[in-house]
Computed example of a mutant assay.
Amino acid sequence: MSVRLFRKALCAAVLLPAFAVSSSALAADEPLKIGFVYVSPIGDAGWTWQQDLGRKQMEAELGDKIKTQYVENVPEGADAERVIRDLAEQGNKLIFTTSFGYMNPTLKVAKQFPDVKFVHSTGYKTAPNVATTNARFYEARYLAGIIAGKMTKTNQAGYVGAFPIPEVLQGINAFTRGMRSVNPAAEVRVIWVNSWFDPGKERDAALALMSQGADVVSHHTDSTATVQAAEEQGKYAIAYHSDMSKYGPHAQLAAVTHHWGDYFTGQAKAVLDGTWKTSSTWGGLKQGMAAIEGFGPALPDDVKQLVLEKKAEIIAGTFAPFAGPITDNEGKVQLESGVLDDNGLNKMNYYVQGVASKMPTK
């Protein structure tokens, strides 16, 4: 080897490690890429709106340590799988999939990308790189039921439901139990729209319930249609997911809401510091993941105070919305005593006494 070639080889041997260290440091400084899949448009209220507020809170707290992106209005099923896979292929190392019907698509893509962490909202299946999260909406739903029971004049409330899955049934049943705790003569009627987000169907369902005598309506769907319909008809409404008072300034009595920012931020921090583990998180009023807020001007102070007192009992653990006895609306005792556990909650497939509707056959 010539002296010139030897010197070149020596320089390369010295410079190469330095370059490698420099590249590694650069990679370490790159932000964590985080993707979100939303089932409906973000809009300015509702489920996806609240999810996106959580994303923005996470961005505000973690700054340039992360970089987020989202895809909105993604149908559950094959489209969801395609979008989730695309986010993983784009280099997102943490992906939040934010609807119940994304559960199996999330698990399928997670197997193909074992180095990516996934968090699925409202589901119950986990994997080594898939965590789940949900809020105990039913706690705040019980409080909303107290409000409905105190404010109704017809002793009838209407409930617009998306799909008859346990999470939605928990809300209907907690609302009914809360309502009847202060008004034993009250009844709740349910109409299913078989969609998370379909403002037209939601509006039609709300109008039908009010035509049947409901003077308080609520919903477990994503749009503001139910609250708007109540405003137009001069009835009361309990909003869901977010404060919808600007759509029903006279109608809204309160809003049952959920809050994801702290949870999202915690998950991102865990990925950043290498401590992330699969988990199932189900937080309620005590953890600040569910809330009742947006109290309307029509709500009397004494009713609000009653609600706040019951809220404190739930947070303290001295009261549970699903304490026995629990009897379904066909007369079958579902729980004689004690408190319905999480397994029972997640298998709920019945209406409680006070729901004047029949369960769907499918």
Results as ranks from 00 to 15, higher is better:
215 D>K: 05
215 D>H: 06
215 D>A: 04
215 D>Y: 05
215 D>T: 06
216 V>S: 00
216 V>D: 00
216 V>N: 01
216 V>K: 02
217 V>P: 00
217 V>C: 00
217 V>G: 01
218 S>G: 00
218 S>D: 02
218 S>M: 08
218 S>E: 01
218 S>Y: 02
218 S>K: 01
218 S>T: 15
218 S>R: 00
219 H>E: 09
219 H>W: 01
219 H>G: 00
219 H>A: 10
220 H>N: 07
220 H>Y: 13
220 H>I: 07
220 H>V: 08
221 T>H: 02
221 T>V: 15
221 T>E: 02
221 T>P: 02
221 T>D: 01
221 T>F: 02
222 D>G: 10
222 D>F: 09
222 D>Y: 07
222 D>I: 10
222 D>P: 03
223 S>I: 12
223 S>R: 03
224 T>Q: 13
224 T>A: 13
224 T>D: 09
225 A>W: 03
225 A>V: 12
225 A>Y: 03
225 A>N: 07
225 A>G: 07
226 T>P: 04
226 T>I: 12
226 T>Y: 03
226 T>V: 15
227 V>F: 08
227 V>A: 06
227 V>D: 02
228 Q>I: 13
228 Q>R: 15
228 Q>F: 06
228 Q>H: 05
228 Q>T: 13
228 Q>G: 08
228 Q>V: 11
229 A>P: 05
229 A>E: 04
229 A>W: 02
230 A>E: 08
230 A>L: 13
230 A>C: 12
230 A>K: 11
230 A>I: 14
230 A>W: 11
230 A>T: 11
231 E>G: 08
231 E>W: 14
231 E>D: 09
231 E>R: 12
231 E>H: 13
232 E>W: 05
232 E>K: 14
232 E>T: 13
232 E>S: 10
232 E>G: 00
232 E>R: 11
233 Q>K: 15
233 Q>I: 02
233 Q>S: 14
234 G>Y: 12
234 G>F: 13
234 G>M: 09
235 K>T: 02
235 K>H: 11
235 K>W: 07
235 K>G: 00
235 K>Y: 06
235 K>S: 05
235 K>C: 04
236 Y>S: 03
236 Y>K: 04
236 Y>R: 03
236 Y>D: 00
236 Y>V: 00
236 Y>W: 10
237 A>Q: 05
237 A>C: 05
237 A>I: 11
237 A>H: 08
237 A>V: 08
238 I>H: 03
238 I>F: 06
238 I>P: 01
238 I>N: 02
238 I>L: 15
239 A>E: 04
239 A>I: 09
239 A>M: 07
240 Y>F: 14
240 Y>V: 07
240 Y>W: 14
240 Y>Q: 12
240 Y>P: 00
240 Y>C: 04
241 H>K: 01
241 H>T: 07
241 H>Y: 14
241 H>W: 15
241 H>E: 08
241 H>I: 10
242 S>P: 03
242 S>R: 07
242 S>H: 07
243 D>S: 06
243 D>V: 14
243 D>N: 15
244 M>R: 08
244 M>F: 10
244 M>C: 11
244 M>T: 09
244 M>K: 15
245 S>M: 12
245 S>H: 15
245 S>C: 06
245 S>K: 15
245 S>P: 03
245 S>W: 14
246 K>I: 13
246 K>A: 10
246 K>N: 06
246 K>Y: 09
246 K>T: 13
246 K>H: 13
247 Y>I: 05
247 Y>H: 09
247 Y>L: 03
247 Y>A: 01
248 G>D: 06
248 G>P: 04
248 G>W: 13
248 G>Y: 13
